[in-house]
Design a protein around this nucleic acid. Structure first.
Lengths: 340, 340
DNA sequence: TTGTACGCGTTATCAG
DNA sequence: CTGATAACGCGTACAA
């Protein structure tokens, strides 16, 4: 039998209540007593039983997923996974809610975040571009005692701020390498499309893409990134112009997470299927595009893993444990039609 | 507050003990009472609190991972993940042990399995090739009340037998497609290497590989599968002979999960780096080979996911719950040096 | 066939 | 600053 708090209390010569205080870092215990308990912990090899702990804390854990209000397929996929998980984990005493924020107005978004209180949430997972307002709001949240984790989009590294998602430089490099290998010895221009180059994610992906393409493959020329700003009309226009201006476009790299419209336009403009196209994130339409060969490869981060990992990370923080870093690393997945 | 067993007992007009009997399908309850309780469950929306349940059952869950005695790097990786998980999940009241079986002698292996008793284990995850002896042993284990799940290597589909691992036909197809795309318009022979073609895994991978290569790419010719039987000397010999007999080998597909020796031999025999090589499973040496371009791609099944998923599956079975199939599907990962 | 009473390991609320 | 003691929700002897 593993030693329990009772054994620990006995070993340290104190009461259960004091053991609890030391274990949970509560105040009002003499340093001497704290040391005695800690010594006993290592001596008898005590390890807290999380199952009993969660049961005893009346309420389980209450986590919130903050996601943008606007978005297309990828956002839906993420939300679907959150809901799925929420349902499955009610029995484990974990409550999960989705909170939408106005992604076009950082101030409003920050205000929404500032209203999240510690007696409503134990932790918040946020999916939002990095802005000063959001960064500050997260900082204040942590001060209020709410654990935070950024998902999909990285936030500035700070104390207590962790990130669950892929390394976007590596993701861009992966796209670059595949693009090059699929193109083989053909030569020509490569079109790169993003929603906006303001975002850290796009910058990093582009960086990684160029880092592979520029030195190793001089017969390709990757054009400057074109921005769609998330508007379908603009996407169409931008692509039309680009194909008109550059007759020998042989590759298309769609960096944003909402690729549906761009894929449709590209198919209409270059129906011959010779264009090597790579996009990000598995959604109903990218999946379909992969199946019918409109898309050659997909770089994906598994939304299910992201959600589960975010929850595990938050929970570990609440119980101030370390997480197994190796288990929480989100993989950069390469999807082709065979391994869907 | 969610309804508890107390509420349920009150709602059904019975005692806590009776509620427990119905909930856990124990005998000795009149059908009429059973119905009453079940009616009350749906009426008040009762859902059992698993946290409390695990705490109350003195012992947590005791799971065993049965793995072969012989093996090289991939086996070590798997075992490493099992140990890591075992350590991390002690606090969650899950105990995990590794049990080795003699993989060259199905009868001895089956005997080892037959000694596993229900008051030592709640569930067993097994990694072993499909043989009649193993199949029967697993069947009897389930009869003894031990839950089973096959990992990595699929066992015959039966009632109560689930599988955590990849679809090997799809994995072979993925390898085939990558091989073809990486080779581009070159033409020549492709070497296919396996430990043995007796195993279902190899057969399925080869099937998938051919299914892509034969119809779509007539300028490649995949040679008959060569067997290494896991012996380094034999591997070397087989490769030497093959390269001597077929001067225009342009591709090498290593189907087995222990690729170290084959990769080393291939590098020595064809040092020019023109050979497109694809192998399975990420290990220290396949990872290294990917980094130094000896290997062009790796098909991987994440051992961490496999272990966690096996545990989740076993636990769900113990608590007779359903699992979210979407969450337990193991992905066929494509690894290149950029997304390691 | 059904019910009572206690225990699991922790947290929380008092009182001292 | 410290210590009893009652929950938490469920499982399980044992009693009826």
């Amino acid at each position: 039998m593993r030693p329990t708090t009772k054994d620990l209390a006995k070993a340290a010569g104190v009461s259960l209540a004091t053991v609890d205080r030391v274990l949970n870092g509560r105040s009002g215990v003499r340093q001497k007593t704290v040391d005695a308990v800690n010594e006993a912990i290592t001596r008898i090899g005590f390890e807290r039983n999380q199952v009993a702990a969660t049961l005893a804390r009346q309420r389980g854990y209450r986590f919130g997923f903050v996601v943008p209000r606007s978005g297309d397929e990828f956002l839906s996929v993420i939300i679907k996974h959150i809901s799925e998980f929420a349902q499955a984990s009610r029995a484990e005493m974990i409550q999960t809610k989705v909170i939408r924020i106005d992604d076009h107005d950082p101030h409003r978004a920050a205000r929404t975040l500032s209203r999240l209180s510690a007696d409503e949430y134990d932790g918040i997972a946020i999916m939002a571009p990095e802005t000063p307002q959001i960064r500050d709001a997260l900082y204040r949240m942590r001060e209020r005692g709410i654990q935070t984790v950024a998902i999909v989009s990285n936030q500035q590294e700070e104390d207590g701020q962790s990130f669950v998602g892929i390394d976007n430089v590596a993701a861009g490099a992966t796209a670059g390498r595949l693009m090059a290998r699929f193109l083989g010895n053909r030569s020509g221009d490569i079109l790169v499309l993003a929603e906006t180059m303001q975002s850290r994610d796009s910058l990093e992906r582009r960086l990684g893409f160029d880092r592979v393409l520029s030195p190793d493959y001089p017969h390709f020329h990757a054009l400057p990134t074109l921005e769609t700003h998330g508007y379908p009309d603009r996407t169409k226009l931008v692509l039309e112009n680009a194909f008109a201006a550059h007759p020998d476009i042989i590759g298309l790299y769609i960096m944003g997470s909402e690729a549906r419209v761009a894929i449709e336009c590209a198919r209409d403009l270059k129906p011959d299927g010779k264009l090597i196209t790579i996009a990000h994130e598995r959604t109903p339409s990218t999946e379909q595009a992969l199946r019918d060969d409109t898309l050659d490869a997909l770089i994906n981060q598994d939304p299910g893993h992201i959600v589960r990992s975010a929850i595990r990370t938050l929970r570990a923080k609440c119980e101030n444990r370390e997480t197994l870093a190796s288990q929480e690393r989100i993989r950069i997945e390469i999807l082709i039609s065979e391994n869907l």
